[in-house]
């Protein structure tokens, strides 16, 4: 809040002036910082309750030009925290997002990574996309990939966006939604 003009109380109630102030909405950047601090606190309480001992670190990175704040969980033997196809990691991220959102009364996206899983997974998915695209070009037959969460499907779509001769399409509902790579485009 910024005071533009001080108010005056006047004398015996006469000659008083209203103060003029400008009230700002919470800045997105401020909200984001608040959210990440809170998310870190929550994770530091939640992980021991899951009998996982690990450290939580805040990391700023940029993904396709967007600034992303990610919470990195590091420690020994964290495969269990990632789960099959990252399912445990995504559940953890979703619940932390809900807890932060409930406390701050705002929806702030939260990204959590465990032992560099996301980066490794992204690399693996891009390689898969290119390999399958090559096969589709050779055979002309469409190839459906295994079901993936939204962020992973997005990686596939983006990896093949500028790949000449193939198009990608997501088909199916919910947990069964998968990307199919076709010849065309």
């Amino acid at each position: 809040m910024v005071v533009l003009k001080e108010g005056k109380t006047g004398f015996l109630g006469f000659g008083g002036e209203e103060a003029t102030v400008r009230v700002f909405r919470r800045q997105p950047e401020e909200l984001r910082q608040e959210a990440v601090t809170l998310a870190k606190e929550i994770l530091e309480e939640l992980l021991p309750l899951m009998q996982v001992s690990a450290s939580v670190e805040v990391k700023e990175l940029s993904e396709e030009g967007r600034a992303i704040i990610s919470l990195e969980i590091n420690g020994e033997d964290l495969g269990i925290l990632i789960g099959r196809r990252g399912q445990t990691l995504y559940s953890l991220q979703y619940l932390v997002y809900l807890m932060v959102g409930h406390r701050l009364k705002a929806h702030v996206p939260i990204t959590i990574d465990v032992a560099g899983y996301r980066e490794r997974r992204e690399e693996a998915l891009k390689n898969l996309a290119w390999r399958i695209a090559e096969r589709v070009m050779d055979t002309g037959q469409p190839v459906p990939l295994e079901p993936m969460p939204p962020n992973e499907r997005r990686i596939i779509h983006l990896a093949l966006r500028d790949y000449p001769g193939v198009i990608t399409q997501s088909i199916g509902e919910g947990d069964d939604r998968k990307v199919t790579i076709h010849k065309g485009g």
Binding site: M50, Q51, G83, T88, L92, L95
Partner: peptide
Amino acid sequence: RVIGKQGRVVQAMRTLLRVVAVKQ
């Protein structure tokens, strides 16, 4: 709030519980 749309919240809680169950 604890169940979520299509049970998504309770399902996420179950997934985290499984981590503890496996450890025990």
